[in-house]
């Protein structure tokens, strides 16, 4: 699903976010990216969704070389990827339903199709009863579930989660993890950047540890740190 070879990202101010980053993630995998803040986890995600361009090296998503995407191809490329953010990025003046349907409106899906799919994901994240409320009326966990629903509503092949539990208490975090596991079980590749040690240690999935922009460990069924 994602292949990188010697991927390097250097910002114009000289900061190196990723260096010599070589990684292969298969279709259907569940991968944790771990490491301290500023290690390069978010930069990696920004490269995958083509928010940033690599400085050098190869980055392939599916069978697309991301660096070769034309400007007008980027929107269509992104329709295959769902993204969740630590700060949810919900639109405050849209209801729960609208926040989710929005992702389908912008890709000009059918009205009927939109209704069916939004109702389906609302049910999946357990928020059908809050469909007409605004984000400010929801708890943090509920907001993250809306953001998750929006990310998966157009059935992406790849789901990227950037610290999705960063703002949530442990119990709510587990609710989100259950959903991510469920989505992964249905065939979506999930890549999650986190520094939630507890979650990584208990789930025992593939762990890619990053430090100073380099991969320092890549372990199947790994823990957050080497000792675990």
């Amino acid at each position: 699903m994602i292949t990188t070879r010697n991927l390097t990202k250097r910002f114009s101010n000289g900061v190196v976010a990723l260096q010599d980053f070589s990684l292969h993630i298969d279709k259907g995998e569940f991968v944790f990216l771990v490491g301290p803040s500023g290690a390069g986890k978010s930069s990696f995600i920004n490269l995958v969704i083509r928010k940033e361009l690599p400085t050098s090296g190869l980055l392939k998503v599916g069978n697309m070389d991301v660096a070769l995407l034309k400007k007008n191809e980027i929107p269509y490329f992104r329709r295959n990827i769902g993204v969740i953010f630590q700060d949810f990025k919900l639109l405050p003046n849209k209801t729960v339903y609208e926040n989710i349907s929005f992702a389908l409106e912008v890709i000009e899906a059918d009205t009927r199709e939109i209704k069916i799919r939004v109702n389906y994901v609302l049910d999946l994240v357990g928020l059908t009863h809050k469909r007409n409320e605004f984000p400010s009326e929801l708890s943090g966990g509920e907001q993250q579930r809306v953001s998750l629903a929006r990310a998966i509503v157009n059935r992406p092949h790849l789901l990227l989660a950037d610290e999705p539990t960063g703002n949530l208490d442990p119990e709510t975090s587990w609710g989100i993890m259950e959903l991510l596991k469920e989505i992964n079980k249905r065939g979506t590749t999930v890549v999650m950047a986190t520094h939630n040690k507890d979650i990584v240690d208990r789930l025992r999935r593939r762990v890619v540890a990053i430090e100073n922009g380099r991969i320092i460990r890549d372990e199947l069924k790994g823990g957050y740190s080497l000792e675990d």
């Binding site: 929107p75 269509y76 490329f77 329709r79 993204v83 990025k89 929005f102 912008v106």
Partner: peptide, 17 residues
């Protein structure tokens, strides 16, 4: 601007935004 960013991230074309 958040609205625009999200639209772009879920795959809206520039003209759609």
């Amino acid at each position: 601007r958040n609205e625009i960013e999200i639209m772009k991230l879920v795959g809206a074309t520039d003209s759609f935004v």
